[in-house]
């Protein structure tokens, strides 16, 4: 019982990190940003999987979009075409996820290798704070005989949006919601 209570307290503290007024503290939001980026990977896995029903795919797309500040943010992918060189395409998040849902892979593995956050948060004119999270992922997808594998570095903008929430004493306190924003995916070419 005590364990459950402590766990509940931990979860509440985790999702409601208060910072007082002024700039948010990087250490406090870092874990939340990483968690959101990780969740995005899990949704990708679900959306592209053959075993997910159409209805569940649609729900997963909506849930994945909620990790982001808007569903119109862009995903830009730099990839290495077979003929050599490097190419780029860019889609809005919602279009990217809908295309992904058509792939229907038999099996998908997404493995996080490393992750880091750019140290300094920057204040935007809108009062939000902005940072960048970079992570390397190994992606492996199987469809029948076909196996697709890549190792990409993803750079995602992080948006910290302030909001006021009353504390136990009924006084308003500044809190920060963390959202993902535009994502740049880079596959290193030889």
């Amino acid at each position: 019982m005590m364990k459950k209570y402590l766990l509940l307290l931990g979860i509440i503290a985790y999702f409601n990190v208060g910072y007082g007024q002024g700039a948010p503290n990087l250490d406090n939001y870092e874990i939340m940003a990483k968690k959101k980026a990780e969740s995005f990977g899990l949704y990708i896995k679900k959306i592209a999987s053959k075993s997910t029903s159409l209805n569940d795919k649609e729900i997963a797309i909506q849930q994945a979009c909620r990790l982001f500040i808007y569903d119109t943010v862009r995903i830009q992918v730099s990839y290495c075409p077979p003929g050599g060189g490097s190419d780029v395409y860019s889609r809005t998040l919602i279009k990217y996820l809908r295309r992904l849902s058509l792939l229907n892979y038999d099996q998908i593995t997404i493995e996080w290798v490393e992750c880091s956050i750019v140290n300094d948060l920057k204040k935007g004119e809108d009062g939000n704070y902005y940072g960048i999270i970079s992570f390397v992922q190994k992606f492996r997808a199987v469809k029948g005989e076909y196996v697709y594998e890549d190792v990409t570095t993803k750079h995602a903008e992080i948006v910290l949006k302030p909001y006021l929430k009353p504390n136990d004493q009924g006084e308003d306190e500044w809190k920060w919601d963390v959202y993902l924003s535009n994502v740049n995916v880079k596959e290193p070419c030889s």
């Binding site: 290798v113 490393e114 880091s116 750019v118 140290n119 300094d120 960048i132 970079s134 390397v136 190994k138 190792v151 570095t153 750079h155 290193p188």
Partner: peptide
């Protein structure tokens, strides 16, 4: 892969 991630200058801030 991890080593490459740390050595690569991934962002202009880096």
């Amino acid at each position: 892969i991890r080593e490459k991630f740390f050595f690569e200058v991934g962002q202009i801030e880096e």
